[in-house]
Write a protein that binds this DNA or RNA. Sequence first.
DNA 1: GGTAGACCTGGACGC
DNA 2: GCGTCCAGGTCTACC
Length: 294
Amino acid sequence: MTRLNLPARPPFNFTSVVNSHGWRQLAPFSYEESTNTLGYILRLSNERVIELALSDGTDGVIVNTEKLDRAEQKEVKDRVAWMFGLDMDFARFYSASRGEPKLARVKKRSIGRVLRSPTVFEDVIKTILTTNTLWAATRNMTRKLVDTFGAPLDGETGKRAFPTPSSIAAGSPEFLKQTVRVGYRAPAIHQLALRVTSGQLDLESFKTTSMPTLELRRELLTINGVGPYAAANLLMILGRHDFIPIDSYALKMVSQEWYGGKPITAKEVEKRFKKWGEFKGIAFWFWDWKDDGG
DNA sequence: GGTAGACCTGGACGC
DNA sequence: GCGTCCAGGTCTACC
């Protein structure tokens, strides 16, 4: 057994990251509520597939997994640090949100980090799978994608890692549509896998790029299946908070909050959050809505 | 720049 | 059990 204790830049709240959005429900994540433990099946660069149990450290994340050598430990540390944004600093957001009752809880509960997958590729695919469909279908499609293309944990075919770009690229759009049931998204997913495999698109460089957010957004919008909502969602995941992922949920929440439930458009959402500037996305994301619909 | 319609799946509903 | 309707963003064509 290997146990790693990964400290975070304070303040840090493990549970707020795990609950920051629905990602914990998407394979190869799993979540055990009784112990507040996040599971993840990770494929290491040496192709070994391991299971991580991630739990709340006093001021960071505790990782329990099988025995790892030094290089593997380093890789796991880097991956988990990215997934939890351990090094992120929200002091400026907390300062900006002071005096706003609807954001009072963010500083109190050390909220701000958004749970990420280990790779940007995985988060782009998952984001595409959230578009134009219901959440239950997103979960199904992700599960099937992992079950179909993911490398299995040693001796446990029921537990698989998220597919690599090359494993998806090796299939066909028809197979993705017929077997994984991703519908019209199949060509977009296949094309993305091809672009990444061929080196034409270096998604992982987006983690550390100093590219201005507008430019990064333009890059994201070159991906088929990624429109304004998906790009904003991915920017949030990448730690850029200038854009609001406006989907039907956003329209509903903003309408209930300020427009008495009447139908509104994206313009009204933008108008209401304009004053938050570079924190628009994060202010929207963690806004304490009147009724979040459960 | 704005808008209409097609794209798919799966669940709800009526018969 | 079958058919129909609907929710959900993106893309393309068109104005």
